[in-house]
Amino acid sequence: MLLSKIIEELMWGMGTSIEIFLLTLLFSIPLGLVVAAGRMSSFKPLQWFMKAYISIMRGTPLMLQLIVVFFGPYYIFGMTLSRDFRMIAVIIAFTINYAAYFAEIFRGGIESIPNGQYEAAQVLGYNRLETFFIIILPQVVKIVLPSITNEVITLVKDTSLSFVLAIPEMFTVAKQIAAAEASISALLIAGGFYYVFNAIVAFVMERFERRLDYYDT
């Protein structure tokens, strides 16, 4: 296979990788906030549920979670799902896995905000939603951004795990080409693409961090 053809195929795969990456971020960050809120809730059953959820998500392999989300509906409920469900299963598995990590990062950030910030906001008459979105969350974002960057970079590489469900993302494509050609060159090129992808992610995140450098706590 021509090198240009290999690169073209890999680029197609990368489109799917980017799709998984973006959809996972889109859903897992808000879900992470919700999970963090539940984890910090004074309503004990909710707190325990979120604790267990986070513990399972962080304590078992993401690859296994992908398999369980895809095959679970059939083995547990006897549902037959079309092959199109594979992509949905991938997004669900990535989202619930990353939400658990994001939740713990957000919790750490929220708990590091001094109580006096809430009290000052209350005395000034801000309601609970205003207090969270105007006073607390902007400060939390600055605190958690370096940890979020770490997770986002890991996510770029983790998208390759979707090969277990035969999703045609970049790693799956590279493996197929490598097997057909009996050569690892496609895999090495894919590695180069992941590296460039992450270099861009790191650059963008650094810009975000610098934009929040305008104040010190």
């Binding site: 000052a120 005395v123 801000y126 205003e130 105007i134």
Partner: peptide, 29 residues
Amino acid sequence: TFGLVFQNFNLFPHHSVMKNIANAPIRVQ
């Protein structure tokens, strides 16, 4: 209405001095 001045100031670090002072009168009042 009352105001409270704290021992530890409790200013909002991410808001400028002007925003610290003016935001609540504008948004809340």
